[in-house]
Amino acid sequence: MTQTKIAWDSGKPIWERLPECYKENNIALWLTSYFDSLLVDTKAKIDDLPRQLNPLECDEVWLDVLAPLCGFTEVYWDKTWPTSSKRLLIYNSYLNIWPGKGSKEVLSLILDCFNIQHLITSRGNFIIGTSTTGDPLGTSAWEYIIYLPTIYRNRTQFKLTQRLNTLYGPCWCSSEIIFNDSYFS
């Protein structure tokens, strides 16, 4: 083992590498102890950085640091959201959320991140250029419906669904939120 490795393993990287004549002096130990602990703590934080950059394993305080790095600006992020939801949003950001933003699938994924029971269905069909009845594009809008359990009425889940629908739902479509328990077991 090298002297450097032995010094770091002992938790005294400076003191262990001093000449032997200084190691016998208690003042040398006292002078180096603060800097030894500072170096050991700093090295531990640097060694822990890969874990902190993983949203599924990082400490909770790191989630709000990682959010802007993953595209969640203040409009798309709320620091009061549950930790589990924050982890899933950041984890899915680059592979699923941002590439598919504006689709029913992404909206459903985001509602799942918040454990909001839902069902998203289409009302009518959308064909580029014409509707199913042959009318020119624009005479009948494509619509989708978000079904929620009636227990969500006048609760935070309903308001959050409205907000997430505005942020992540298809913007060229009209939508409606309907409470109906028959879709949920």
Rank of each mutant, 00 (worst) to 15 (best):
N125V: 12
T73N: 14
L39S: 01
H118I: 12
D47A: 11
K101I: 14
Y76F: 13
I14P: 04
L109G: 05
G102K: 08
T161S: 15
S182H: 15
E143K: 14
K12Q: 14
S103L: 10
T139F: 14
I6T: 06
I127R: 05
G124E: 07
T150S: 15
I127P: 01
T32D: 02
S175F: 14
A7Y: 07
Y34A: 07
R51G: 00
W77K: 09
L49Q: 00
R155K: 15
Q117F: 01
Y168A: 06
F184P: 06
K86D: 02
P19H: 03
N96G: 02
T2R: 07
T32L: 01
L39W: 10
A28Y: 01
F126C: 05
Y76Q: 05
T73D: 13
P170M: 06
Y34F: 05
Y168K: 04
Y22M: 03
L164Y: 10
L56G: 02
N115T: 05
I110A: 12
G71C: 04
N165G: 15
S122M: 09
V61Q: 00
R155V: 06
A28G: 00
P19D: 03
K23F: 01
Y168I: 08
L119F: 07
F184A: 09
D64M: 00
G138T: 12
L89Y: 09
D181V: 11
I127C: 09
N125W: 06
I177D: 12
F114A: 09
P55M: 08
T42Y: 08
A67W: 01
R17L: 15
K43D: 04
W77H: 06
A44M: 05
A7F: 05
F184L: 11
N25Q: 06
I116S: 06
K86G: 08
W172Y: 06
G100L: 13
N165C: 15
L107R: 12
I46T: 01
P149S: 13
S108D: 10
K104L: 15
E105I: 09
R153T: 04
L38Y: 02
Q162P: 03
W62G: 00
S122T: 15
S140Q: 11
Q162Y: 05
W15A: 09
L137N: 06
G129I: 12
W15F: 15
E20T: 08
N92A: 14
C171Q: 14
C173R: 10
N26L: 06
S37Y: 08
R123T: 11
E60L: 01
S103H: 08
E105Y: 04
L38T: 04
K23H: 03
Y183S: 11
K79M: 02
H118K: 13
E74Q: 13
R51Q: 09
K79L: 07
Y22F: 08
W172G: 05
L148I: 13
T32V: 01
L49G: 00
Y152S: 09
T42Q: 03
W81D: 03
E74L: 11
K5M: 07
V75A: 10
P136L: 07
W77E: 04
L69A: 04
N115D: 14
I120R: 05
S174K: 12
W81L: 06
S33Y: 01
I97F: 04
T166K: 13
S10I: 03
Y147H: 15
V61E: 00
